[in-house]
């Protein structure tokens, strides 16, 4: 099932990535990264670990605080939801027992939004954590798929395409050997496989 896409992209093709990870992006942060997928660009900065945790956090584990900064204006419900999703995703990849009673601050600044914003932010935050040398269980990669009215699945849609779609889903995978299908074998060679999808956010009618 063919679908017209800009730049003669096929439905299962990602837009070109332009990922730069360097301390020189932001001099005063402990780790920073810029992640761009064509026109969508996100800047992530990591500060910490800093002393102390909030009252409702477990002091025996490290805490992660995420601040989402939109390109313009104040943060709303959607941004608050993105903050929570990002916080939970990052907490699941960080080894939080190494630096207990500390808080790591992750600030995500949106430079430009042309679709797949949340996956772009997750990828940027992961690279920034690596740059800040925060101990991680594994790396993550986030992607976005969308479903057209005709039932065609498109990978990595643009902002215009996102608005026309019936539904879309954001998926986050770890870089370990994974089995996405539950009935799949949980052994590959000598390494035990893990169930693959870490975070899944759906919007719209998937059926």
């Amino acid at each position: 099932m063919e679908t017209d896409r800009p730049d003669s992209q096929t439905p299962n093709q990602l837009r070109p990535l332009a990922c730069s990870c360097s301390c020189s992006i932001l001099h005063r942060s402990h780790g920073s990264a810029s992640w761009a997928q064509r026109e969508t660009k996100v800047l992530a900065a990591v500060y910490g670990p800093k002393a102390g945790t909030k009252k409702n956090e477990n002091p025996k584990k490290a805490s992660i605080k995420v601040i989402w900064k939109p390109k313009t204006g104040q943060i709303g419900k959607v941004e608050k939801e993105y903050e929570m999703i990002l916080k939970r995703t990052l907490e699941s990849i960080c080894i939080r027992t190494i630096y207990p009673n500390t808080t790591t601050l992750v600030i995500v600044q949106i430079v430009h939004d042309d679709g797949v914003l949340l996956p772009c932010a997750i990828n940027a935050a992961c690279v920034a954590l690596v740059d800040a040398r925060i101990p991680l269980k594994h790396l993550v990669v986030a992607i976005c798929c969308s479903i057209t009215d005709s039932g065609c699945i498109i990978l990595d849609p643009t902002k215009d395409q996102e608005e026309k779609m019936k539904a879309f889903i954001n998926l986050v995978f770890p870089n370990t050997i994974v089995s996405v299908l539950p009935e799949g074998s949980l052994q590959e060679g000598s390494e035990t496989m893990a169930h693959g999808i870490m975070t899944s956010i759906t919007q719209g009618a998937m059926s």
């Binding site: 990849i93 080894i95 690596v130 101990p135 991680l136 269980k137 594994h138 790396l139 770890p174 870089n175 370990t176 000598s190 390494e191 035990t192």
Partner: peptide
């Protein structure tokens, strides 16, 4: 290496700085 890459089995090596041992699969 990057986070999540296998460095060895717990029966063969000990985890030092920048490494951790997963007890569920002894890796």
């Amino acid at each position: 290496v990057t986070p999540g890459e296998v460095l060895g089995r717990t029966s063969d090596v000990k985890a030092g700085r920048g490494a951790y041992a997963a007890l569920h699969n002894n890796t």
